[in-house]
Every structure is written in C-alpha cells, then in structure tokens.
Design a protein around this nucleic acid. Structure first.
Lengths: 347, 347
DNA sequence: GGCCTTTGCCAATACGTATTAACTCCGCAA
DNA sequence: TTGCGGAGTTAATACGTATTGGCAAAGGCC
C-alpha cells in the first residue's frame, strides 16, 4: 500500500555503481558522449532492471523545453476538429512530442491556455482561434501555429476556404438554382467567413444576389442548422437551395427539412462543407465540399515542430490546401419533377 | 525577438523587495500563512505588474503532484467517448485539475501512458481499457479509475450494460420479433460484452435463441456495422431485427440497409446503443438505448479526485448508471404491412 | 527590565534531471 | 623526470518552486 516513490536516475546510478550524471549521459545525453562501453552496458541493465522512467517534468525544467505541444480546439463535438487532432497527433507523436489537448467545450479557453503555458509547452497549435475568443496577449513570446485562421503575427495553415464557397456556388448555379440561401457562421471563425465570402462573391459574379432574409447566421452545430433552416422554411418566399457553412449545420438543416416534410433535394437542395463521416450516413447523403482536416492538422504539426527545431525561417508560406466538391444526394436541379433528373446528383 | 525568459518568483521577489519564499507563501501557500498585510499586498502587486505565472512543472516536482489527470480513450472518432471526456473535463477543471487527454486512435496506447506517467499525472481515467490493450503492469502504483470496465484491482464507473441489452431485447420481443440477430463487439470491451450478454440472456429466457450465423462481430465503427450488416443481408435466411452493440455500428448497419434497398423498419428493425447525437439525424431516426456518457465521465472524475484528495476509502461502490430505451423510427413489428402499425415505433 | 511568546521574514534545502568544468588515470613523447 | 593530452568519470550547479527551521523584532507578563 505504501506508494513507493518513483525510481530515479540516482537509484539507477547506485545500482550500476556509477554517479548520477553518468546515468544521464548514457540514457539521454548525446549518443556520441564519451562513456566506456562496459559502463554504458551496466547502466542500461540497471535501468532496465529497475524499470526506470525518466521524470519528464524534471527534464523539461532543466532543458527549458518539455517536448509537449498544446493544441486548442473550440470543441470536440464537431468531428471535423477531431480529424484535425487526429492528423496532428500522428505527426507529433512520431516526432517525439506529446500532445496536450485543450478542449474548449464552447467556453472561453483562456484559462486553459494559461495552464498550458504554465506546463511549459514548447508550442501551441490553435484551431479556429476566433471561436475560442483568445486574447493575443496571452500568446506573447510563444511559438504558435494557427489553423484555419489568418494572421500577420503567426504562421498559419489553412484550407482554400474561398474556393470551398465558390465550388458550392458553382455547383448550385450549374444545377440552375437562382433562389439561393446560406446559413453562415455566427461567430468570428475566419475560415467560415471566407467560405461565405467565396460563396457570395461567386453568386454575385453570376448575377445572383442573396436576399438578406436568406442569409442567416447560426452556431456551427446541428441545432444551429436546424433552427436556421426552420426559420428559412417559415418564410413565404423559400429558397430552392441552401449552402451551409459546416456539415453539422447542413445535417441540422436536413433534419429540419425532414421534420417539416420538405423533400430534399426535390424541394430544397442542400450543400454542406467539411465532409465529415456523418455526411455519408444520412438519406439522402449530403452533398458537400471536402476539406482535408487530417492533412490540415498534420501540416500544422509539421510546421510547428519545424519552427521549434529548425528555427523560425521554416515559415515559408505554403499555399492553402485544396478542397473539392463531393456531389451526393442532397442537390438537384430546382423544381425537379419526381422522375427525371432527380438522381443526377448521386453517383 | 530575443525570447525573454519567463518571469519567475525570484523576479517578483526582487520587485517587491522580499525573498522568494515569501512570494511563494503569499501566492500559493496556505492562505493562513503568517505574512504581514502590507507585504502580501506588495507581493501581489509585483506579481500582477510582471504578469507572473507560476511554473507548474517546478511546482509539481517539489510537491510531488501535478494537479493533472491523464485520460485515456480508445478513439475520439466515436462521439460517445467525446461525451465522456466532456463530462469529465467539466468536473476536473472545476476542481482545479488539468486534463491530459490521450487519444488512442486505434493504436496501442501503452507508450502514451508511459508519457503520462513521466509527466507525473496524479491519476488516470481509462475508458474501455480492453480496447486499448493496456498491460496492467504499466499502471503499477498509480491511482486509476476505470470507465465501463470491471476490475478487482481498481475502482470502476459503469453503466448498466446488461440492462441495455435486456431493454433492447425486451423491446424487440414486445414488437413480436423472433428472428433476431446481433452485431457484437470484435474486441474485448467489457461494456459491449455485457450488453451482448444481457441481450442474449433475455432472449433465451423468452425462448428465443440467436442462431450462430446471426451473431456477428465487428469493430465499433460505422464501417464495421456496414460490413456486418451486408453479410447478414447476404444470408438466405434473414433476421427481422438486429441489435447493434453501438450506435456507430447501428448507423453503419442502417446505411448498409439503405444501400441494399432493404427498408427499415419495414423489413428489418434496428436497435443501437449509446444514443449519440447522430442517432437522431438519420431517416428514420435510430431506436437506441441511451447511456449517460457525460455523467459517466463526470462520475469518474469525481471518484478519482476524491481518491486523490480524501484517501482511498472513497471508493464505495456506486451502482451502475441507469440506461433507458429510446423508441424511435428504426423499429417496428416484423413483416408489417405498408400501412398499419408501421409508424408505431416513432413517437 | 528580564523572560517568554508571537509575529514576520528569510536562509537553506529538496524535487529529479541535464550540463559544464574539473579531476583522475594512463600512456607517451621530450 | 617532467609535461602533455586524451579518455572516462564525477563534483558542482542550475532549472523554478515549496517547505522547514531558525532568526530578529515586537509585544505581553510579572
């Protein structure tokens, strides 16, 4: 029951009959450290026998780096962010970094970021900082990479959000839609704003304008999409197509349509954005714009670790990651007859 | 550009004209510490002015506790575990603990747990340890709480998994199903095994046995459910109802039915388990057994923190959390006519 | 005014590791 | 013999905090 204290490098030293620094040299120092072969073997055996695990906190304290990176996401309830995290963790772990995941859960993350700072994370990856409401001052003299955000101050990793909006618009235009609505972001998430901008700009270039009543704002959740769509369906003049800034929102919108017995895509076409797994699980399947979430995370991790190890010059701006339209079942030409081209959108 | 070194308690001491221990006494020591009012004020002001943040690693090193708890989940791609984490984080943060989330991503978590150990987490919450393939030896002399697992050695927090299976079985029996299949877990996740046991036992008591070909095993993913269901549909003798150990599996099964143009619930009834948000987004909505994921996490956190602070006697076994059947659209009586009682299952 | 208690602060040390400088051997050349 | 250099090890120290014991000053008591 007596919680035996952890075995330290001193214990290993004692057992191997050497001093503690020698243990440190063998186990963590440069492999080119001058230590006799026999000694090294003795130390290794002693460490093995005692089950020695170095105390990473002590190591971080003296080395002034913890080999941990902090990751801040606004929520894990959106599978998109889970994918970003997955991509990012794979890289980080492979490079020998631990990931301290900080889940905003919708609340302000400032205090949690304070904690990360206090735990001496070497760097920070912040996803959708706008949503997190993070004061810049908090990040003073930290190494930071932003995901899906723009910034003069810190390097960023983004997808081509304008193109996402453009692809959605082009798809709807091509199908013949002119009465088009959008459910945009309620908060200041940069990527979502840019999706919106790309969408609206493309429509405008085609001579189609979105009536202000058809431009709604909703939190990026299922419920948000549901309520916004309900509002749209309640108008006397309904759009024939709706672009949602996020797949979750689109799924909510789809749900609202089903509840209201509005047929999708016959009466209303829906386009989402992200291409989360769930998008393929509904009936009909969701037409959406695929955003490479995992790759976004992986790139952010590579960039950050590069900065941490290679110096700050690694921040050569890479171009945004490409996105692509995925035609599925929730889009079709407007006022389609029940027969005809109805299945056109699905493969 | 020169990354100014962090401000330490020594800096604060210098500015306030006191010694470092005094700073420590004021800022972190017992509030009843004997410090003159004026001194305390000076220290607090100096700390404020310098923007002092204590180094939590150093503190952890000397206090031999880090006020961090490690959390291990097999994957974050299953929203169920995200909910558990959400519930758990809320409690932990409120109690002043940081959460170090360790995402298995399907791979063995042992090395990551090593890292958590090395970072001196005060305790560990491990969810679905069986899936994680975690050797017990790794956890020697750690304070651990298991979620959805049974163990003689460590305290556990569970839902009433047998009841979950029983409720599903009773529901299907009540509807009149006799040709019943199940898609069970492929790995050794205890809760899923118990769901299965409860399900099969209840059927057996009612004189219904599940033919071995109708008892399939699949990983707890959408794809797993999809493939298992495809296999079931390929048999010459099809069941009229299928219980899936997990909602994700059920969603995959539903997807497989839709793809195969098998109508749900008319031709096949489906029951899931977990009640994740997604279960309400499909058409028809998924009938399932609700498991209080968030509460599961919250309880685990409370139990662990109680053990950390109050001593090991707090582990008085609480009864498993209750589960409840949620009737929705994927269940109906077998061989139902297109009209009649078809919608009975939905509210 | 001496003695004891209380108050307020600090010197010293510990936590477990990494790193630097120094120290010991030992052989070898001058 | 002295001096020198390199190989192998260790003593000393630092990282930033918390904690213990003690020291000086202030106050209470007779």
């Amino acid at each position: 029951m007596a919680k035996r204290t952890r075995v330290t490098s001193h214990d290993v030293a004692a057992r191997a009959g050497v001093s503690q620094p020698t243990v440190s040299l063998v186990l963590s120092g440069n492999p080119r450290a001058r230590v006799a072969k026999a000694t090294r073997a003795r130390v290794l055996r002693a460490a093995e026998e005692l089950g020695y695990r170095p105390n990473l906190l002590a190591r971080a304290l003296v080395q002034q780096r913890s080999f941990a990176i902090g990751v801040v996401v606004p929520t894990l309830s959106n599978p998109f962010f889970v994918d970003v995290v997955n991509g990012l963790e794979r890289v980080a772990v492979a490079e020998g970094y631990a990931v301290l995941l900080c889940n905003g859960r919708g609340e302000p993350v400032a205090p949690q970021v304070e904690t990360l700072r206090g735990r001496m994370v070497d760097g920070l990856i912040i996803d959708a900082a706008g949503a997190a409401g993070l004061p810049e001052a908090l990040l003073a003299d930290m190494t930071v990479v932003l995901v899906e955000e723009v910034s003069e101050r810190w390097p960023t990793v983004t997808s081509d959000a304008e193109a996402a909006g453009r692809l959605a618009a082009e798809h709807l235009l091509e199908l013949g839609h002119r009465a088009v609505a959008m459910i945009g972001p309620a908060t200041d998430v940069h990527a979502l704003r840019r999706r919106e901008r790309g969408f609206l700009a493309t429509l405008r270039q085609a001579g189609v304008s979105v009536r202000s009543r058809w431009l709604r704002r909703a939190p990026a959740t299922v419920r948000g999409g549901q309520e916004a769509m309900r509002a749209l369906l309640g108008l006397d003049a309904r759009p024939t197509a709706v672009f949602c800034a996020t797949d979750l929102v689109a799924l909510g919108a789809l749900k609202a349509c089903v509840s209201a017995r509005v047929r999708v895509p016959e009466e209303v076409s829906l386009v989402g954005c992200d291409d989360i797994e769930m998008a393929r699980l509904t009936t009909p399947e969701l037409t959406t714009v695929a955003v490479p979430a995992r790759e976004l995370g992986a790139r952010a991790a590579r960039l950050l670790i590069g900065m941490l190890e290679g110096g700050p010059d690694t921040r050569g701006r890479r171009r945004p990651l490409p996105v692509s339209l995925v035609r599925r079942g929730t889009t079709a030409p407007p006022v389609a007859s029940a027969g005809g081209a109805r299945m056109e959108g699905s493969r």
